[in-house]
Amino acid sequence: MIKNKEILGGIIFFSLSLYLFYETSNFSSTTERYRSLGPAVFPYVLAICLGLLSIVLFIQGVRSPKAELFSFSMKTKASVQVLSLIAMLFVFLIWVEKIGFIIWSLSFMFLGQIILGERRLVTAMVLSIAVVGIIYLIFGFLLNVPLSSGFLSY
């Protein structure tokens, strides 16, 4: 029974340590002669440390009173806003090379403001153009970062 975040964390980190322990055993055997100081030693020690720490965290969780798993509720407006921003960022990052930096950042800025409660569309648009303009000026022109133009380059 997961009654608080310490127990959940303990289980996740213990599983991760087991996986890491298994994974390090698969490191190249050509360095077997270096085994005592080889490439697996440090990750091995770290996996053991993580395992031990996760057990302590789990025990702390068992001793602690029952509590909410997250400090925020998934039903609040703010959590929907965070989820929307992250989902939009994920989708936009997949498309950025096709649509180009300018269209991507302008759309993200504009929609981001709407998601966060800006109701004045003209203000949101003006701010988006201003912010993207400054970022493009710094990275694109001053620092010569090759920001993708996407379909605008055709």
Binding site: L89, F101, S105, G112, Q113, L116, A124, I135, F139, V145
Partner: peptide, 15 residues
């Protein structure tokens, strides 16, 4: 306005 500031930081982080 945080509604303008927070998306600006995300764009800046990505770029």
């Amino acid at each position: 306005k945080q509604s303008a500031l927070l998306p600006s930081i995300i764009v800046l982080c990505s770029v």
